Deep mutational scan, measured.
Amino acid sequence: MQRVNMIMAESPGLITICLLGYLLSAECTVFLDHENANKILNRPKRYNSGKLEEFVQGNLERECMEEKCSFEEAREVFENTERTTEFWKQYVDGDQCESNPCLNGGSCKDDINSYECWCPFGFEGKNCELDVTCNIKNGRCEQFCKNSADNKVVCSCTEGYRLAENQKSCEPAVPFPCGRVSVSQTSKLTRAETVFPDVDYVNSTEAETILDNITQSTQSFNDFTRVVGGEDAKPGQFPWQVVLNGKVDAFCGGSIVNEKWIVTAAHCVETGVKITVVAGEHNIEETEHTEQKRNVIRIIPHHNYNAAINKYNHDIALLELDEPLVLNSYVTPICIADKEYTNIFLKFGSGYVSGWGRVFHKGRSALVLQYLRVPLVDRATCLRSTKFTIYNNMFCAGFHEGGRDSCQGDSGGPHVTEVEGTSFLTGIISWGEECAMKGKYGIYTKVSRYVNWIKEKTKLT
């Protein structure tokens, strides 16, 4: 034993070699072989497995989906700052455009905790909710729209109204504003409101030439003092309507412009014939205590009207009353817009006519005020429907199939267009061939041609 100890002390290297040989010859039971080890760690190889990531292109799944990435790591994937920024906006807080917040056709661009709407022409605001041009839906104005110097929408209202708090709607500024039905039992019968379409306001006024200088022999019209197929109006439903009495009662109609003036057809009036105007009328054979009678003290036909040349060209006249009318729910003026808007309103496509005229061709006159909704007829169809001249200051309205029309005794009465609950004068009943005849239409004086003249002559002093 002493000898062994001496050998170990003198030859430590020998001992180490012996131990190493023993270990190498022993069977290893701690580690699995290569094949079995792979069965336990069965993990798919990654895209760049075996390579240094710093030297390969980034992978979106590896960089940002398996674990949260930084902007720089995302930049490695896209290799483009702009594309990385677009991805980053949604990656950080989701897609803010998912709810489609942009209105009126706006395009949404996502941002971090926010979004941006790219608005089409005519709109602005956070969600493109603000109209900035009158060309689109009248700028959301209830009545009139004008573009300011910086191309912003400025709404306005006709006389007797003021802008509401929203700067879009119009509200009454006087007790009985024009064009409004205020009798409670008839307010439910107000005709369907007309909503502004998209309009090209630059070209809204037709490029028409008034044929002022045409000389033409007097034409022989049949029954051209021209509501057939209409309905009984309720008291106060058309408070701007008046009836004219002269040699015979209810020979023509008219509309209240203001307390002192009536507008009617020029062919209705004769110099030297006494005319009485009755406002607030409903049943011409009954006294309903809503009527107001006034005498006409002055007749002003349009300066281009000449019955000797043509009885229905420039067929418009103004009547001055001896005493002002007292405005109330049964006696209310009709609204008159400017030339541009009167023309736009007419193009809405349908209007209402009213009167006490004959209820059928050569038949009896109506006792109760009649009204009828009539569609506008395109000019080409209008011209083809008659052998008589249709001037540019006239328009056609009615039904091709016949059966409904204005008729004798309705002449001078109103053709009105309702705009968001307020009625505007767009025409004056003038003439036609018979009444409600198939293929024939009622012919009306186009008020847009005469609004400046009306307003100039009827100013209240």
Rank of each mutant, 00 (worst) to 15 (best):
R3I: 11
M8H: 11
E10H: 15
E10R: 04
T16R: 09
I17L: 12
C18Q: 04
L20V: 10
L20I: 08
L20C: 05
L20F: 12
G21Q: 04
G21A: 13
L23V: 11
L24H: 03
S25E: 04
S25N: 09
E27P: 02
E27D: 12
E27G: 10
F31V: 15
F31D: 07
D33T: 09
H34N: 14
E35M: 11
N38D: 15
K39A: 13
K39G: 12
N42E: 09
R43P: 13
K45A: 14
R46F: 09
Y47R: 05
N48A: 15
N48Q: 10
S49D: 15
S49M: 10
E53S: 10
G58W: 05
N59D: 14
L60T: 07
E61C: 03
E61H: 10
R62P: 12
R62A: 11
M65K: 11
M65I: 12
E67W: 04
E67N: 12
C69P: 04
C69L: 04
S70L: 09
F71L: 11
E73D: 12
N80A: 07
N80F: 03
T84H: 07
T84N: 10
F87D: 15
W88Q: 15
K89P: 15
Y91S: 12
Y91E: 15
Y91Q: 15
D93V: 15
D93P: 15
D93Y: 11
D95V: 09
Q96K: 14
Q96L: 12
C97M: 02
N100Y: 09
N100C: 11
C102I: 00
L103E: 12
N104M: 04
G106E: 02
D110T: 15
D111S: 11
D111I: 15
N113Y: 07
E116W: 12
C117Q: 01
C117P: 02
W118R: 12
C119R: 02
P120G: 09
P120L: 10
F121A: 10
E124P: 04
E124A: 14
E124I: 09
G125Y: 02
K126E: 11
D131V: 05
T133V: 15
K137W: 05
C141G: 00
C141E: 00
Q143D: 00
K146T: 12
N147C: 07
N147T: 14
S148Q: 14
A149C: 08
N151C: 04
V154Q: 10
C155N: 00
C155Y: 00
S156R: 10
G160W: 02
G160F: 02
R162E: 10
A164D: 07
N166L: 02
C170E: 01
C170A: 00
V174T: 09
P175C: 03
F176C: 03
F176D: 02
F176P: 00
G179K: 00
G179Y: 00
R180G: 03
S182A: 12
V183F: 09
V183D: 07
V183C: 04
S184P: 12
T186M: 11
T186I: 12
S187M: 12
S187V: 11
S187H: 07
K188E: 10
T190A: 11
A192S: 09
E193C: 05
T194N: 09
V195F: 07
D198G: 13
V199A: 06
D200C: 04
V202I: 12
N203E: 07
S204Q: 04
A207S: 11
A207T: 14
E208L: 10
T209C: 06
D212N: 10
I214P: 08
Q216P: 13
Q219R: 07
S220Q: 08
S220R: 05
S220V: 13
F221H: 11
F221W: 08
N222R: 11
N222M: 14
D223A: 10
T225L: 11
R226W: 07
R226H: 12
V227Y: 08
D232W: 13
D232M: 09
A233T: 07
K234H: 10
P235V: 06
Q237H: 08
F238I: 06
F238C: 04
P239T: 01
W240L: 00
Q241T: 14
V242T: 03
V243G: 03
V243C: 04
N245W: 02
N245P: 01
N245E: 05
V248I: 11
V248S: 04
D249R: 02
A250W: 06
A250P: 03
C252L: 00
C252A: 01
G254Y: 00
G254H: 01
S255M: 03
S255K: 01
I256T: 02
I256D: 01
V257T: 00
N258S: 05
E259T: 06
E259C: 03
K260Q: 04
I262K: 01
I262P: 01
V263L: 11
T264R: 01
T264A: 06
A265P: 04
A266N: 02
C268R: 00
V269F: 04
T271E: 03
G272Y: 03
V273C: 02
V277W: 01
V278F: 04
V278A: 05
A279G: 03
E281I: 12
E281A: 10
N283S: 06
N283A: 09
N283M: 10
N283P: 04
E285V: 10
K293F: 14
K293G: 03
R294M: 01
N295V: 03
N295E: 07
V296F: 00
V296G: 01
I297F: 03
I300G: 01
I300Y: 05
P301L: 12
P301E: 07
H303Q: 12
H303N: 09
N304L: 14
A308K: 10
I309T: 07
N310A: 11
K311L: 09
K311T: 06
N313Y: 10
H314N: 12
D315I: 00
D315G: 03
L319K: 00
D322Y: 01
D322K: 00
E323N: 08
P324V: 04
V326Q: 14
L327R: 05
L327F: 14
N328W: 01
V331P: 00
T332P: 01
I334N: 00
C335P: 02
I336E: 00
K339R: 15
E340T: 13
E340I: 15
Y341D: 10
T342K: 00
N343R: 08
I344H: 15
I344V: 09
I344K: 13
K347Q: 13
F348M: 11
G349E: 04
S350C: 08
G351F: 01
Y352N: 08
Y352P: 02
S354Y: 08
W356C: 03
W356P: 04
W356R: 10
R358P: 10
F360T: 15
H361N: 14
H361R: 15
K362Y: 07
K362D: 14
K362I: 04
A366G: 12
A366N: 14
L367Q: 13
V368N: 06
L369D: 04
Q370E: 05
Y371V: 15
Y371A: 13
L372C: 11
R373G: 05
R373H: 13
V374W: 05
P375I: 12
L376N: 05
L376G: 03
V377S: 03
A380L: 08
C382E: 02
C382S: 02
S385D: 12
S385K: 10
T386G: 08
K387I: 05
K387R: 12
I390W: 08
M394H: 14
F395A: 01
C396D: 01
F399M: 08
G403D: 15
R404K: 01
D405W: 08
D405H: 14
S406I: 12
S406H: 14
C407V: 06
C407Q: 04
Q408H: 13
S411H: 10
S411P: 08
G413W: 10
V416L: 06
T417Q: 04
E418N: 14
E418G: 05
V419S: 05
G421V: 03
G421I: 03
L425N: 02
L425V: 01
T426M: 00
T426I: 01
G427P: 00
I428T: 03
I429D: 05
E433S: 12
E433I: 04
E433N: 15
E434R: 05
C435A: 04
G439V: 03
G439S: 12
K440S: 08
I443R: 04
Y444T: 01
Y444F: 14
K446C: 05
V447N: 01
R449K: 07
R449M: 14
R449Y: 15
Y450F: 04
V451F: 04
W453S: 01
K455H: 12
K455T: 08
T458W: 01
K459G: 14
K459P: 04
L460Y: 14
T461M: 12
